[in-house]
Amino acid sequence: TEKEKEVKRLAKERGLSPDQVRELAQRAGFSPDQAKQIADEFA
């Protein structure tokens, strides 16, 4: 999704850790499970 792409782009730009990616995703409105899946891509 657009929102997911945006979260991943920000995460890459900022060099976020997987935990930070998960927090960012949840703040963007993703469920905890979705946020974990997104964060796992950065693990």
Results as ranks from 00 to 15, higher is better:
Thr1Gly: 14
Thr1Phe: 14
Thr1Ile: 13
Thr1Glu: 14
Thr1Tyr: 13
Thr1Leu: 14
Glu2Asn: 10
Glu2Arg: 07
Glu2Ile: 10
Lys3Tyr: 06
Lys3Ile: 11
Lys3Arg: 14
Lys3Met: 14
Lys3His: 07
Lys3Gln: 11
Glu4Gln: 10
Glu4Asn: 05
Glu4Ile: 15
Glu4Trp: 15
Lys5Tyr: 11
Lys5Gly: 07
Glu6Asn: 06
Glu6Arg: 07
Glu6Val: 09
Glu6Ala: 12
Glu6Leu: 14
Val7Gln: 01
Val7Thr: 02
Val7Arg: 02
Val7Tyr: 03
Val7Pro: 00
Val7Gly: 01
Lys8Leu: 14
Lys8Ala: 03
Lys8His: 06
Lys8Met: 09
Lys8Phe: 08
Lys8Asn: 03
Arg9Ile: 05
Arg9Tyr: 04
Arg9Trp: 04
Arg9Asn: 05
Arg9Met: 08
Arg9Gly: 04
Leu10Val: 12
Leu10Ile: 15
Ala11Gln: 00
Ala11Glu: 02
Ala11Phe: 02
Lys12Cys: 12
Lys12Ala: 11
Lys12His: 14
Lys12Tyr: 12
Glu13Trp: 06
Glu13His: 06
Glu13Lys: 08
Arg14Asn: 13
Arg14Lys: 14
Arg14Glu: 09
Arg14Pro: 03
Gly15Glu: 07
Gly15Ala: 07
Leu16Gln: 02
Leu16Ser: 04
Leu16Arg: 02
Leu16Cys: 05
Leu16Ala: 05
Ser17Glu: 07
Ser17Arg: 10
Ser17Pro: 04
Pro18Ser: 09
Pro18Cys: 01
Pro18Thr: 09
Pro18Met: 11
Pro18His: 14
Asp19Glu: 13
Asp19Arg: 10
Asp19His: 10
Asp19Thr: 09
Gln20Gly: 07
Gln20Arg: 05
Gln20Met: 06
Val21Lys: 00
Val21Gly: 01
Val21Asp: 02
Val21Pro: 00
Val21Ile: 10
Val21Gln: 00
Arg22Pro: 02
Arg22Ile: 15
Arg22Ser: 06
Arg22Tyr: 15
Arg22Asp: 05
Glu23Asp: 13
Glu23Phe: 06
Leu24Gly: 00
Leu24Met: 09
Leu24Asp: 01
Leu24Tyr: 05
Leu24Trp: 06
Ala25Leu: 09
Ala25Cys: 04
Ala25Thr: 00
Ala25Val: 02
Ala25Trp: 01
Ala25Gly: 03
Gln26Ser: 07
Gln26Thr: 11
Gln26Leu: 15
Gln26Phe: 08
Gln26Gly: 05
Gln26Trp: 05
Gln26Glu: 15
Arg27Trp: 13
Arg27Lys: 14
Arg27Ser: 14
Arg27Ala: 15
Ala28Leu: 15
Gly29Leu: 01
Gly29Glu: 01
Gly29Trp: 01
Gly29Ile: 00
Gly29Ser: 02
Phe30Asp: 02
Phe30Tyr: 05
Phe30Ser: 01
Phe30Asn: 00
Ser31Arg: 05
Ser31Lys: 05
Ser31Phe: 04
Ser31Ile: 03
Ser31Thr: 15
Ser31Gly: 10
Pro32Gln: 10
Pro32His: 08
Pro32Tyr: 13
Pro32Gly: 05
Asp33Leu: 12
Asp33Phe: 07
Asp33Ala: 15
Asp33Asn: 08
Asp33Gly: 09
Asp33Lys: 11
Gln34Thr: 06
Gln34Arg: 15
Gln34Asn: 04
Gln34Pro: 01
Gln34Asp: 08
Gln34Leu: 09
Gln34Phe: 07
Gln34Trp: 05
Ala35Leu: 02
Ala35Phe: 03
Ala35Val: 04
Ala35Pro: 02
Ala35Gly: 02
Ala35Cys: 09
Ala35Thr: 03
Ala35Glu: 03
Ala35Trp: 03
Ala35Arg: 02
Ala35Lys: 00
Lys36Glu: 11
Lys36Met: 13
Gln37Val: 12
Gln37Asn: 10
Gln37His: 12
Gln37Trp: 07
Gln37Tyr: 06
Ile38Val: 04
Ile38Pro: 02
Ile38Ser: 01
Ala39Arg: 02
Ala39Ser: 06
Ala39Pro: 02
Ala39His: 01
Ala39Gly: 04
Ala39Tyr: 03
Ala39Gln: 03
Ala39Cys: 05
Ala39Glu: 03
Asp40His: 13
Asp40Thr: 09
Asp40Met: 13
Asp40Pro: 01
Asp40Ser: 10
Asp40Glu: 14
Glu41Trp: 09
Glu41Val: 06
Glu41Asn: 07
Glu41Phe: 06
Glu41Arg: 07
Glu41Asp: 14
Glu41Ile: 06
Phe42Ala: 04
Phe42Met: 09
Phe42Gln: 02
Phe42Ile: 13
Ala43Gly: 11
Ala43Ile: 11
Ala43His: 07
Ala43Leu: 11
